[in-house]
Each structure stands twice: as C-alpha cells, then as structure tokens.
C-alpha cells in the first residue's frame, strides 16, 4: 500500500546522482572536450554505417575496482544507435 503513494525512494535517487557526479568530478574532463570527442567519433563511425547522431551518448564512467578506490579505472562509454549498416562507399 505504502509503495503506491511513494513512487521512488530518495535514497536511491541520491546514490545514483552522486555516482554520476563523482565520476565527472574525478575525471576532471570539460564538457567542451566531450563535445569534440563526440563529433570526431561520429565522423569516423559514419564512414562505415549510418548512425543516429541525435541519440548518440558519450559518457565517462568507471570500473568498480572490487570496492577498492585505488583499483578503479575510468572507462569511456559510447552508445550509438545504428540506422543502417552497409550503406557506405566501402565494400
């Protein structure tokens, strides 16, 4: 019954927000650089397949390092929906 009136636990919201926030704090990488990186990646991939540039996401995350801070490593996540494969000049 309670759950009906309280759709989302704020504890989970706080934890989720912090995880994303701290990754960008730690990596210290500017939004401008991320935008340039995103443009360059989309140019390269577009040579081989047609992608949806509007839906494309580029984000820096990190491995969990088995809970040990010193073992965490940054990871680049790229999510890019493909519209058509094989419609390129390369055969």
């Amino acid at each position: 019954m309670r759950r009906l009136f309280r759709p989302k636990k704020t504890r989970a919201i706080a934890k989720g927000r912090l995880k994303i926030l701290l990754i960008s704090d730690r990596v210290n990488c500017s939004p401008q650089m991320m935008e340039l990186l995103k443009n360059d990646i989309s140019k390269v991939i577009s040579k081989y397949m047609k992608i949806d540039e509007q839906q494309m996401e580029v984000q820096i995350g990190q491995t969990d390092g088995n809970g040990r801070r010193s073992e965490r490593k940054p990871v680049l996540y790229i999510n890019m929906p493909i519209l058509e494969i094989g419609k390129t000049g390369i055969s």
């Binding site: 636990k9 504890r11 706080a14 801070r69």
Partner: peptide, 17 residues
C-alpha cells in the same frame, strides 16, 4: 534509512570506497 529516505552507511562506503 529504513524508510528509504537516507543513504545507509553501506551506500556511503560503496561510493567513497
């Protein structure tokens, strides 16, 4: 914490490692 409105000690440790 029990009601889901505060991060637990484990949550904090998980984040700060």
């Amino acid at each position: 914490v029990r009601r889901g409105n505060m991060m637990s000690v484990d949550d904090v440790i998980d984040i700060l490692a």
